[in-house]
Computed example of a mutant assay.
Amino acid sequence: MNRSVTYSWRLREIMAARGLNNISDLIPLLKDRSIDLSASQIYRLVGQRPERLSLALLGALCDALECSVEDLCRFGVQTTQQPRQAASGGPTVIDLNSTIRPRRARVRRTD
């Protein structure tokens, strides 16, 4: 059984709840906390789910928006079962030479 951790990024929702509707509202709040990001980086941070995030940026976001990490990012765990293999221990191999025969091509002259 495999377990995979999923998460949802809720920065846009938290910003809207605090009355911050544009990324230009977030830029000065981060600059006050010594986080200097370009507008395009903040746009991606707000609009997309980040794969990597520095702890300094995460702390600055939590401080600026007065929220916790759990508010910004909701985690969930999904369990998946691995498919069972056949009792013989390996995958079944089909011999294509005996099961599928190609049709013989016929070439005809056009004149």
Rank of each mutant, 00 (worst) to 15 (best):
I23Q: 15
R108N: 06
N22P: 00
V5A: 04
V46G: 00
E51N: 10
R108H: 10
L11K: 01
P83I: 09
E70V: 06
N2T: 13
S40G: 06
N97A: 15
K31E: 14
P28N: 04
Q78V: 14
S98P: 00
A39Q: 14
D32A: 15
D111F: 07
C62S: 06
Q41P: 03
A105E: 12
K31T: 11
A39W: 00
L72M: 02
T6D: 09
V46W: 02
S24M: 09
A39Y: 04
F75N: 00
M1N: 06
V69S: 08
R104A: 12
L55R: 08
A16L: 14
G76K: 08
S40K: 13
V107N: 05
A17R: 14
S88R: 15
I94E: 07
L55E: 06
S40D: 08
D71Q: 10
G76D: 15
E66L: 07
S24E: 10
S54I: 05
L45A: 02
R104L: 10
T79M: 09
R84L: 12
R108I: 11
P83V: 08
S4M: 13
A17D: 14
R3Y: 14
E66F: 05
V46P: 00
C67W: 09
Q82L: 15
L29Q: 11
R44P: 00
S34K: 15
A56F: 08
R52A: 08
R49P: 04
P28L: 04
R106S: 07
R52N: 12
L53Q: 01
D111T: 09
L30P: 03
V77N: 04
P83K: 10
A86M: 10
Q85E: 11
A86R: 14
I14C: 06
G76Q: 10
D95V: 06
P83R: 10
I100S: 03
T99Y: 07
S88K: 11
P50D: 00
Q82T: 15
C62V: 04
A105C: 09
W9Y: 05
Q85K: 15
G59C: 05
N97L: 10
R49K: 15
I23K: 12
F75E: 01
M15K: 05
V46D: 01
R44T: 11
V93R: 14
E66M: 08
A86K: 11
R44L: 08
A64N: 07
R18V: 02
M1C: 08
P50W: 03
V77L: 15
R33A: 01
P28R: 03
S40T: 13
R52I: 06
N97C: 09
Q81K: 13
S98W: 00
S24Q: 12
L20Y: 13
L30G: 06
R33L: 13
L20G: 01
S68L: 07
L53A: 00
L58V: 05
